[in-house]
Structure formats: structure tokens, C-alpha cells
């Protein structure tokens, strides 16, 4: 009915947070990495604001396509109150119920997948540091 509004609301919050973080972030950490397994190359670690950008893109992209699905099913209309379920109290209650169950789970799953991506990327960063040859 309007479940996509929950991840869309999260996307607004995380986009603002990423912008605020980006403006306050210090210069990225420089490290030496072997990309080809032989040559050491200086590289910059990507900042957290950019990783937060991954979550923004997942949330905005998913919400946009889900919004289209709701238009397809006639649940979102281009006139006030924009959500057909909001026109009567019984449907509105059902819509809020769906937002609090399906919508919240959608936002939670996307965030959990992003957290998993953070854990994997952190492990890859650590592994790249371990693979460096010992400095003589």
C-alpha cells in the first residue's frame, strides 16, 4: 500500500547524514596495496561517508522502483491524498499496519545487507594490509 515510504524516509535521513559526514571528514587514510600481487601502489581508503552512500543508493533505488509498482497497482495516484488507502480510515489503518510490518522489515533488511557489506569490505581491507611484504 505504501510500504516503500519507510525505506524512502530512511534514505532521506541517511542522505543528510552522509552529506554532513562528508563535510566534516578528515583527509582519507593513505595505504600501500598490491593490486596485481607484485607492485606496491599507494592508495586511499574510501571514507565512511562513501560507504554510507552505498546504503543511500540501495534505499533510493529500491524505493523508486517500488513506488512505480504502487503506481502500477493504483495505490499511488497523482492527486491528493496521493495514496488511495489514505482516503478512508479503515484503509488508512491497514496501510499504517503494512508500513509498520513490511515497510520496517524492508528498511531493516536493506540496512542489514549494507552492514554485511561493511563487514566484508573491512575484512578485504584488512586482508590487503596483511598481504603486504615485510618491510626490510
Amino acid at each position: 500500500m505504501a510500504c516503500f515510504l519507510v525505506p524512502a524516509a530512511e534514505a532521506v535521513v541517511t542522505t543528510i547524514a552522509a552529506k554532513a559526514m562528508k563535510s566534516k571528514e578528515a583527509a582519507p587514510e593513505t595505504v600501500k596495496v598490491q593490486f596485481d600481487g607484485t607492485h606496491l601502489i599507494e592508495a586511499e581508503k574510501i571514507p565512511f561517508s562513501r560507504k554510507l552512500g552505498w546504503l543511500n543508493k540501495l534505499l533510493w533505488g529500491g524505493s523508486a522502483l517500488l513506488a512505480f509498482e504502487h503506481v502500477w497497482h493504483g495505490e499511488v495516484v497523482p492527486w491528493f491524498p496521493f495514496l488511495t488507502a489514505a482516503s478512508n480510515p479503515a484503509d488508512a489503518a491497514e496501510m499504517l499496519q503494512e508500513m509498520s510490518t513490511v515497510g520496517v522489515t524492508m528498511a531493516a533488511l536493506v540496512t542489514a545487507v549494507w552492514a554485511g557489506m561493511l563487514a566484508v569490505s573491512s575484512a578485504i581491507e584488512k586482508r590487503a594490509q596483511k598481504e603486504l611484504p615485510a618491510e626490510s
Binding site: 543508493k57 540501495l58 534505499l59 533505488g61 533488511l109 536493506v110
Partner: peptide, 9 residues
């Protein structure tokens, strides 16, 4: 990002 976001949802 767009398709994975929508797929998860």
C-alpha cells in the same frame, strides 16, 4: 544499486 535495492524490498 537500484536493482539490488528493489530486489531486497
Amino acid at each position: 544499486w537500484m536493482y539490488w535495492g528493489a530486489s531486497l524490498m
